[in-house]
Design a protein around this nucleic acid. Structure first.
Ligand SMILES: [Zn+2]
Ligand SMILES: [Zn+2]
Ligand SMILES: [Zn+2]
Ligand SMILES: [Zn+2]
Lengths: 381, 381
DNA sequence: CAGAGTTCATTGGGTTCA
DNA sequence: TGAACCCAATGAACTCTG
């Protein structure tokens, strides 16, 4: 049966909010039913309504909506919507469980997850797009010449060479006299700094990820498994983006990239689980719980794990080995630098970040710039 | 779908102001809809409209706009525009807040600010203009009389004296023999004097800043954050002007200027916050409150912090180091001049430590060394 | 299936800047 | 002036519950 919208004359298949109205008037009414007095007619409060004119005067459209008997009491309140959502969620779970005979599995999994932000639903997981490109544009931009690159490598090799000749380094002695002088230096040299910055940029996501602490308990086994898989996938995707930003990785041949990535992804997923599974309570806790902020050091270890020389089918083993060495060196230098001044730096950074995170990105471009805050939206404009 | 502009025949993708019209006619109508009688046709009020001719006669173009049914009532009024702007602003904030979970912040921020002079609203923040030029005209001329200089120094000394009079300095053992003779001298030499004056001029703003004490309490968190950001930015801008007046800074290459400025701005912002945040009352107080006059010595430390040699990507590290040394020397000389009559080395140590403690221990190894600061790890290098 | 809500590409306002 | 942009509002097409 086809009817006519009492407001605009468009055709419709039935009633909405108690009166015959079309899809568009239905949506319009839902959105604006409570805004009647916010609108004003620029004509004489008696605008003719039809399909073309209905968008011109909101006031008259809404008036007519009420006039033909649409009732805002029929609108769901926020609580009702919330309730409905919950119901849908449950229904979905049940459906899935029925379909897969999941109820047969006995046992339970306790999972606490952070707010199930919409960006965390599978469909929304980003697909390695360019979103990060402009953030790190400056890093990608540096078209380093072959010469510079060679120089960089040689420089690092020199350092590494010296490093290898004194085996005492790796034990991280507390007495700094035993550490070769060239390692003790209050700053990175240029190539170290670049590498370090690159790594920091690449692990930006993971370092800054803080998600609210709303907990959801999941004790249904299947839901739990899905959650685990989902979070594992999210982790791997993040990792992908991270790797792609490491020049050393990008420059490898495709074969090696794939091999290294696959192995490292597994390794790192295992490592991550260390932060998510709490043995004592037999619980999984996913980001959203403030206790899971990964130990920063892990991020530094990432490339060392990535450039795993033990893979059987690597094509350019030597290169991989070299890259691993580079990052081992960097980690060592980082540790030495970091723990000299740990308290101050940490505290300061914490304060700055805290303060900065409270400001909307567009509040003060100057401050953003000074704090090297990345504001992708702003950069674009 | 492609349509034809009813006014000029250009192609368009839809309606504008109730009638099919192209982008240019849309903009034209928006700008001129209210100016119909301001224009006059120099021909016969019936000019043919097409893409080429549309710019020739405004009168006829506008007439045709109305003729094809464009309605100026659909234009937003100024209030509506204002409203729209506000809405967008709010939306942005909300989006950001959602993203960063700011709504989760519970608690409040107490801020007392000085009179919210119009020059303190973000849009009015001065952009490093010449406003300060006449203030320092006489200083830039460089012919400062010895008297003026002495006066200024004495003034500073008095302030320092009062500030420290509470400590029981006079009982401390004194032994000046360990200070190299060339440093002990009753006056600055010429270049020292110039540097000193330059610094005094550059920090003039901060030393003399007194702003009325009208207090405003801000207890809405968002408003508070905005305030903090604003004042931080104001501070940074002041700092910019200060730095720009240091010749040593102006003469650096652009890269170094930027790097040094960015880091120092953060450091100094942290330092400043020390004077603005009152821990006991959990309150922020911004200039306007007479209690926040910063400790004068901090101003002397400013250039030492600015010329931070530890930044990883400095191009002319040697130069930066040299400049830092210069200012460290100046500070030392200043302190000695100030205290040489009683030769209170301990007080000096105290003052230096005070300033020094504001810096992270690795900020200036040289400074550490000079001040006998206990940093065993650093000494090794 | 009626009638709630949800999603997302499109529309049509305004703004910017060469 | 107008091309190119931004973005809130719109509405067609959808999902979900009873
Ligand atoms: Zn309708
Ligand atoms: Zn109307
Ligand atoms: Zn046109
Ligand atoms: Zn004409």
């Amino acid at each position: 049966m086809i009817y006519i919208c009492g407001v605009c004359g468009d055709k419709t298949s039935g009633r909405n909010f108690c009166a015959l109205s079309c899809e568009s008037c239905k949506a319009f009414f839902r959105r604006n039913a409570n805004n009647l007095n916010k609108y004003k007619c620029v004509f004489q409060n008696n605008c003719q309504m039809n399909v073309e004119m209905r968008t011109v005067c909101r006031k008259c459209r809404l008036q007519k909506c009420f006039a033909i008997g649409m009732r805002k009491e029929v609108l769901m309140t926020d609580e009702e919507k919330e309730e409905r959502k919950r119901k849908m969620q449950k229904n979905k779970q049940k459906l899935f469980a029925d379909k897969n005979n999941i109820n047969k599995i006995n046992g339970k999994i306790n999972i606490f997850i952070g707010k199930t932000d919409s960006s965390f639903t599978p469909s929304m997981v980003v697909t390695d797009s360019e979103e990060t490109d402009n953030i790190f544009e400056f890093l990608n931009n540096n078209n380093i010449s072959k010469e510079t690159q060679d120089l960089e490598i040689r420089e690092l090799e020199d350092i590494l060479w010296v490093e290898n000749s004194s085996s005492t380094v790796s034990t991280l002695p507390t007495n700094c006299n035993t550490i070769p002088a060239h390692i003790i230096c209050h700053t990175f040299n240029e190539s170290e700094g670049m590498k370090f910055n690159e790594l920091m940029a690449a692990t930006y996501d993971e370092r800054l990820a803080t998600i609210p602490i709303i907990k959801t308990e999941v004790s249904d086994v299947w839901e739990g498994i899905k959650m685990l898989a989902l979070h594992c996938e999210i982790g791997v995707r993040k990792q992908t983006r991270c790797f792609k930003q490491l020049r050393a990785f990008r420059l490898m041949c495709e074969n090696d990239q794939l091999l290294l990535f696959k192995r490292a992804a597994i390794q790192l997923a295992c490592m991550r689980s260390k932060y998510f599974y709490h043995h004592d309570q037999e619980e999984w806790r996913f980001p959203g719980d403030d206790t899971v902020q990964p130990f920063r050091l892990q991020l530094q270890c990432t490339p060392i794990i990535l450039f795993d020389t033990n893979h059987p089918n690597i094509t350019h083993r030597k290169n991989v080995k070299f890259q691993q060495k580079v990052y081992i060196h960097l980690l060592q230098r980082y540790l030495l630098m970091k723990y000299q001044t740990e308290i101050m730096r940490d505290l300061q950074q914490k304060c700055i970040n805290y303060g900065l995170n409270l400001c909307p990105p567009d509040m003060s471009p100057l401050l953003n710039e000074i704090c090297d805050r990345d504001c992708p939206q702003l950069m674009a404009s």
